[in-house]
Amino acid sequence: MAFLQLDALSKAFGPHKAVDGLTLGVEKGEFVSLLGPSGCGKTTTLQMIAGFVEPSGGAIRLEGKDLLAVKPAKRGLGIVFQSYALFPHMSVAENVAFGLEMQGVAKAERAKRVAETLGLVGLGAFAARFPRQLSGGQQQRVALARALVIRPQILLLDEPLSNLDAKLREEMQIELRQIQRTVGTTTILVTHDQAEAMALSDRIVVMNQGRAEQIAPPHEAYERPATPFVANFLGKTNLIDGKAVRPERIEFASSGLAGTVRTRIFQGNHWLYQVETASGLLTVIRQNAGGTMPEEGASVHLAWAAP
């Protein structure tokens, strides 16, 4: 049995099944992402693990013990909320110390661990500030520190980066990954951003309408999507003779499927083509290597390796 085991976990809100028989085993130290569009049941799953939503069926076990029998306040999980949910009336240090205080950790020990954890997220100098006085990225780090300082068995991240701008988000992804590697906490991330899930996770769970469509390492899910939904959700895809072919796998060749270039868009590091062929309109992505590329209206041939 895995470190954290979800067994046929279900949640129904009236007739609507938010989560429908989800089974998932998460190993110790693993980073798993629940990925899917809004309403796919990923957040509900997270809230059931946290204890804020009661499942209608199924089981959750942590190290073989029934987690559902444990009150939310006693589960000892670290949670980073989408809104961060920092306590606005407490300083950064007080926010981070709160969980330790609840555990009855002695004052000196508390101060030491707070300082340690704030150092880990690079906020050592901000201990006395109030959340209001911090930027979005800094608030995010406080939320992370607050969750990590209690040395949780599992870290739950609920869309933690969705309120940050694109550049900051990328930086935080790298940092989050590094921190998770350093402390080695088993982590479950909920996100709708496939790039984020793929960048951070050991495995991703692609969810749709309350079910897991595929559970696999990111590369495998991308290369060998189990369903058309997974193929589409993880990136642009062409469906040729019932098979998913990634646009970057298609090359312009001297022979092969004949077609005409409809549109060509320059995107800096690559070109995005729409090519009309007998198999329909295909998307093709070619690296920009500096050479000349087929123009709009040109007749081309397309070739690709069988997936």
């Binding site: 939310p72 306040a73 589960r75 949670i79 809104s83 709160f98 969980g99 209690i150």
Partner: peptide
């Protein structure tokens, strides 16, 4: 009040 804030406190072990 952030609706998640009570949950955040509960998750940290507050009664």
């Amino acid at each position: 009040l952030d609706p998640q804030i009570e949950n955040a406190a509960v998750a940290l072990g507050a009664g």
